[in-house]
């Protein structure tokens, strides 16, 4: 049973690799719709990227903490 759960967890973690490209793309496109200068778009996208990743890391930490005893 534990092996099944571990395999499911590994598959879910593997799926997390699909997330970073989405964060980068959403940041770039959103910033491009706000600003015109390429340099400013890239700088703002980087900042937004870090903010989104940080926010999701916090949510992940909270969920992991809540589900630790299950």
């Amino acid at each position: 049973m534990h092996y099944v759960l571990a395999a499911g967890g590994a598959a879910a973690l593997g799926r997390l690799w699909f997330l970073p490209p989405l964060i980068i793309i959403v940041s770039l496109v959103y910033s491009a719709s706000r600003y015109e200068s390429p340099g400013r778009i890239v700088r703002r996208a980087f900042r937004l990227c870090v903010q989104i990743a940080g926010f999701m890391a916090v949510v992940l930490g909270i969920l992991a903490w809540l589900s630790a005893g299950l």
Binding site: V29, A32, S33, Y35, E36, R40
Partner: peptide
């Protein structure tokens, strides 16, 4: 995301670069 791009093509960027 393309909705943002369509709006950008129609209205231009939301902020002038000098404002940021």
């Amino acid at each position: 995301l393309n909705i943002l791009a369509i709006y950008d093509a129609y209205e231009g960027p939301a902020y002038e670069d000098e404002e940021d």
